[in-house]
Design a protein around this nucleic acid. Structure first.
Length: 874
RNA sequence: GGGAGCAUAGCUCAGUUGGUUUAGAGCAUCUGCCUUACAAGCAGAGGGUCGGGGGUUCGACUCCCUCUGCUCCCACCA
């Protein structure tokens, strides 16, 4: 077998992915094993893979691959989300570029364009996920607008409507004048902006007096229908019941008194525009004020008032300010910082707007979902998100589920010709209901008009863990009974409310139980300046480029190394380099072992026997630590443990211990043990780095067609001998000390040294051969202290390395004195505790005993150091 | 304005109910090595008064208070 000298990811990644896929290793069907289920957070159907996906899906793949290797029936369901606003915006933009205006199209024509776009660009991201090694069951791929998914959504809508949980009502909504749709509160981002506070003069009718009103939005005076003051405000008491004139507009409006007004802000007088401010709307309802909506849907002025018709809202702001000033009705203009709501999707300034929308009443159905998380039936990782979750759930508002878009599930409400509406899953069922409702048997489907709006995207994805298994349409099917509830959900905290909370709500409402057991919340991927990675900033590298450059395993490892749950991660290409270097290390370790010739009959050297015995324990100890870390989702730590195990313990120590002399063969027993260790290490590493581990696993032994590391059993931690591990740590310390002497004295490795350990020293005797091999010695003796030797102390025992030539006594003394000072300082700190009566009296016995042990150690060390210094001075 | 969280080596982070050798890791840095798997490497070294101050305790990175700085969530006083 010819082994390339370097690992080339590009040569084996596609090969192995195809192999896994062709052999059906990703596929899952219900069987007698325990299920381990993960549903992917469906990315936007027209999206492309970014670093956030990379992180998120790498974590999922680690969990899924590990579960699969632990004997679970692992099922990772992939899919995409129709992302109604985002996708429709893209299609509208694309049509616009082609000179087609959405308004000129019929709904059906538009949908045809949208589906064409989806077919062309949809699912690219799923192909990209394959590049990173995602072990999804692709035969289960779902799209939130698949026919069965649509039917699930509609069925749920009708069901909730019939339960009285969905209602229709006029509400102030967040209107996006670019996307021309209402947004939920969660889709609005508030941003601090510098703006101006305009002080306008409203003339009091029948008097020469003016009331000054401060506003940031002078253009809304077109819709003013009242002026409000605080009932207790002495400045304005005389105005109660009077009327004032709106500047420029000339409208006469009443002065009302309500304690809503903050007397401290501005002038203490508030203009009331019920159609364009949430709080004003409340005042309007309370005082039965006229509601004048002055805007068209796109943010221009309509003809309700007859002034400034067609002008954009921001142009009007400047224009009306000029006109007010020209009429001498502008008291002053101040600079002012306030927050403005922006659309998450289009960044347009949100216009509060009154409109008829559909709402889901959240109060009752969210209760079990709150309890589940508070009682840790569902665990959030990290747990700090419980607080955030509780706060949101306790103050949950009704969910505006309608969107004024075409791309999505159309609301199944049908309006009757004579008014009123019915809600049904199909037009035919609607017709029956309509006939009953109106008493008109002659009605036809054509007489009914379906609501033009579609449902919020999240109204389909909140069913995802159920609907992907057909659990809405056919609640008792075998699939959903087997796979639901799912095991882990991995997602970003910014969609905790949008998606996670609502899935939990839907889970209890439609399955009577939680949708997933654990929620792992990843951090946000940021650049070195801590800015969120985003397309608009252009600071996000393309994961596919990084895979091409470093390999998928390297990128996966780079992402995992810096990803403590819930913590933001500062992306740094150096981490991917680290991943790539680790791949190189694994590759080279393999090349070393593969290069050995074997003499099956040769007896195993003592050093190799020790090494095998030690690494067996070390490996098992680490395996149980890794298991413990992963059980707590400390994935980054778990990977680091395996990384160090492979690089330091296995490559740095074990392989060096068993490595035969140049040109010599290795004995059969040692080779077999080494291949066995390699096999286990590859398996533990496989979930993190699937490609290189598969490649090497096929190299380290003969494999039959259809065999794969990804379906092998994960090695389980067996008992580890702690004594062997700690003995070897001692050996390592001694070896390091000798190496240090070499380094300080510039003694080359080929020059054999000898070590003298008077009285036997602390090296466990059987490890002599290891020390000799690793430190480059010719022998270890138990002679008396030699003259002209350098020395060191490990665990209170003195060791000597005889050297030829003069020893720099002064330098040695200085070094030893420094050590001595440290030891004395340490002793002092111990003595301080031990001489404190209250410490001895109140500290636990164990702690006191430990301090005594520390004291004994320190005294021993001090004595040895003093002895050494004395010897040198002689 | 309300709430939550964070602050430990140059960087990214561990540090589990306060006591495990006067704080650990990885990366980076410095020094020496092309030693026959690997210079994308090997061997060694340096680096932190655990954000400031106060308190509780025999003992505080760990608990409490306070200040400073940062982050996130919620609210949205015009």
């Amino acid at each position: 077998m010819d082994i390339p000298s370097k690992y080339e990811p590009s040569l084996c990644e596609d090969k192995w992915y195809r192999y896994w896929s062709d052999n059906g290793f990703f596929k899952s069907v219900p069987d007698s094993r325990k299920p381990y289920t993960v549903v992917i957070p469906p990315p936007n159907v027209t999206g492309v893979l970014h670093m956030g996906h990379m992180l998120n899906n790498t974590i999922q793949d680690v969990l899924v691959r590990r579960a699969r290797m632990k004997g679970f029936n692992a099922c990772w369901v992939p899919g995409t989300d129709h992302a109604s606003i985002a996708t429709e915006a893209k299609v509208v933009a694309k049509l616009k570029a082609e000179g087609i205006d959405k308004a000129s199209l019929t709904r059906d024509e538009f949908m045809k364009h949208a589906w064409e776009w989806k077919e062309k660009h949809g699912g690219i991201i799923l192909e990209q996920l394959k590049k990173m090694g995602a072990s999804c069951d692709w035969s289960r791929t779902k799209f939130t607008m698949d026919p069965d998914m649509n039917r699930s959504v509609i069925k749920v809508f009708v069901d909730l409507y019939n339960k009285g949980k969905i209602y229709r009502g006029v509400r102030m909504v967040n209107w996006d004048p670019v996307a021309l749709t209402a947004l939920s509160d969660e889709e609005v981002i508030y941003k601090e902006v510098h703006s101006k506070l305009y002080y306008l003069r409203y003339k009091v009718e029948g008097s020469d007096e003016y009331v000054i009103v401060a506003t940031t939005r002078p253009e809304t005076i077109l819709g003013d229908t009242a002026l409000c003051v605080h009932p207790d405000d002495e400045r304005y008491k005389h105005l109660h019941g009077k009327r004032v004139t709106v500047p420029v507009v000339g409208r006469s409006i009443p002065v009302i008194a309500d304690s809503y007004v903050d007397m401290e802000f501005g002038t203490g007088a508030l203009k009331v525009t019920p159609a364009h401010d949430v709080n004003d709307y409340m005042l309007g309802e309370k005082y039965n004020l006229e509601v004048i909506d002055i805007f068209n849907d796109n943010g221009t002025i309509n003809d309700k008032v007859g002034l400034y018709v067609g002008m954009d809202r921001f142009e009007l702001r400047d224009k009306i300010a000029e006109d007010i000033a020209a009429a001498s009705l502008m008291e002053k203009i101040e600079d002012y910082d306030n927050k403005v709501g922006l659309s998450e999707r289009t960044s347009a300034v949100i216009e509060p707007k009154l409109s008829m929308q559909w709402f889901l009443s959240m109060g009752d159905i969210s209760k079990p979902a709150l309890k589940a998380v508070m009682d840790d039936v569902i665990e959030l990782v990290p747990a700090k998100f419980k607080n955030t979750y509780r706060h949101w759930m306790e103050n949950v508002k009704d969910w505006c589920v309608s969107r004024q878009l075409w791309w999505g599930q159309r609301i199944p409400a049908y309006y009757l010709p004579e008014g009123g509406f019915v809600v049904a899953e199909t037009a035919e069922e609607a017709l029956e209901l309509a006939k009953k409702k109106s008493g008109n048997d002659k009605l036809t489907v054509a007489d009914l008009r379906q609501d033009p709006d579609v449902l919020d995207t999240w109204f389909s994805s909140w069913l995802w863990p159920i609907s992907v298994f057909g659990g809405i349409l056919d609640p008792d099917n075998e699939e959903v009974k087997y796979y639901y509830p799912t095991s882990d959900l991995v997602t970003a905290p910014d969609i905790l409310f949008f998606w996670v909370a609502r899935m939990i709500i839907a889970g209890y409402e439609y399955r009577g139980t939680f949708p997933f057991k654990n929620v792992y919340l990843t951090g946000t991927v940021r650049d070195k300046q801590r800015r969120k990675m985003s397309k608009s900033l252009g600071n996000s590298p393309d994961p596919l480029d990084l895979i091409a450059q470093y390999g998928a395993d390297a990128l996966r490892m780079g992402m995992l190394l810096c990803s403590a749950a819930g913590n933001d991660l500062i992306f740094d290409e150096a981490l991917i380099e680290q991943g790539r270097n680790f791949c190189g290390k694994m590759w080279n370790a393999f090349r070393l072992v593969k290069g050995w010739s074997v003499d099956e009959g040769a007896s195993q050297p003592e050093s190799a026997a020790c090494a095998v015995e030690w690494f067996t324990s070390k490996l098992n100890a680490t395996l149980s630590q890794v298991e413990a870390a992963l059980a707590e989702y400390r994935i980054s730590e778990a990977l680091m443990m395996v990384y160090k195990l492979f690089w330091d313990e296995f490559s740095g120590w074990y392989l060096e211990m068993v490595k035969p002399a140049y040109g010599e063969p290795v004995d059969g027993a040692t080779l077999k043990a080494t291949i066995g260790f390699f096999d286990k290490l590859l398996k533990v590493l496989h979930p993190f780095m699937p490609f290189i581990t598969e490649e090497l696993w096929h190299y380290i032994a003969e494999r039959k067609e259809g065999e794969s590391i990804m379906i092998e059993r994960m090695p389980e931690a067996e008992a580890a001998d702690e004594k062997i591990i700690s003995d070897m740590e001692l050996v390592k310390e001694i070896v390091s000390a000798v190496r240090n002497i070499r380094k300080e004295k510039g003694l080359p490795l080929r020059e054999k040294l000898s070590l003298v350990a008077p009285g036997g020293g602390a090296v466990p005797e059987r490890y002599d051969s290891v020390v000799i091999k690793m430190a480059g010695l010719d022998k270890i003796t138990a002679d008396v202290k030699p003259e002209g030797a350098l020395s060191f102390i490990v665990k209170g025992c003195e060791y000597f390395v005889p050297v030829t030539g003069a020893i720099d006594t002064e330098a040695e003394i200085a070094k030893l004195t420094a050590d001595l000072e440290y030891a004395r300082g340490f002793l002092a700190s111990v003595m301080k505790k031990l001489s404190n009566e209250r410490f001895v009296a109140s500290a636990p016995e164990k702690v006191v005993a430990l301090e005594h042990a520390k004291r004994a150690d320190a005294l021993k060390k001090i004595e040895a150091l003093e002895q050494q210094i004395a010897n040198l001075k002689r």
